[in-house]
């Protein structure tokens, strides 16, 4: 059961990350098009404003994927000295702290969106982008991260209780087995 959940989460986040990747590529193409247009004496206007929004949204939605790929950097000086039981305890603790912290962040991100909804805020730019439009997906990304962190913690805790330390470590350990770069 916990393995199924983890596999499902990974697959889901792979999709999310693919989507995020496409958004990032689209942003690069948009910037390139604007650079070329400028040479021809014209411009879309507002590319940097839009890149900013893209960065905020790409960042928040990529977080959960990175967590499941064990990409958030941890210092393992003490951890690497321990036997597998000790490592797993540290991993569980670390994951719990992560889940808690990200939940606080997601919780504190909501008032930013709420404020924009309440004031019908628009960016202080000629584009007048409605801020709710870009802050809502950004907030949902952090919420998604928090949700994934708790589910992963629960799944890893079950694995640990079953004594399956190896699976726990591959779910919430300090480094991926193999770096993704080959």
């Amino acid at each position: 059961m916990p393995q199924t959940v983890l596999t499902f989460l990974r697959r889901l986040n792979l999709w999310v990350a693919s989507l995020v990747g496409v958004v990032l590529l689209a942003c690069a193409v948009f910037i390139l098009a604007d650079i070329i247009l400028r040479q021809l004496g014209s411009s879309f206007g507002g590319t940097d404003e839009i890149s900013g929004y893209v960065m905020a949204i790409v960042t928040s939605w990529g977080m959960a994927f990175t967590m499941l790929e064990l990409g958030h950097v941890r210092i393992d000086i003490l951890r690497s000295q321990l036997a597998s039981r000790g490592r797993v305890i540290m991993d569980l603790f670390s994951q719990a702290v992560l889940a808690l912290t990200i939940s606080v962040i997601a919780f504190q991100c909501w008032p930013v969106v709420a404020n924009s909804i309440q004031n019908s805020s628009t960016a202080n730019t000629p584009l007048e982008t409605p801020l709710t439009l870009v802050q809502m997906p950004w907030f949902l990304g952090w919420t998604w991260f928090a949700l994934n962190a708790w589910i992963t913690l629960a799944a890893a805790a079950v694995l640990t209780l079953r004594g399956d330390y190896d699976s726990t470590e591959s779910a919430i350990g300090a480094f991926a087995e193999q770096e993704t770069m080959k």
Binding site: S51, M55, A56, Q108, V112, W138
Partner: peptide, 28 residues
């Protein structure tokens, strides 16, 4: 703590920092 959300938004809503994913992608 009430400033946390605004800080998270303004430090990631940055056209400057989008250079990070682009440079990493280039290397990849």
């Amino acid at each position: 703590l009430r400033g946390l959300g605004n800080l998270v938004w303004s430090s990631s809503n940055s056209a400057t920092l989008i250079a990070i994913p682009f440079f990493v992608l280039l290397g990849e």
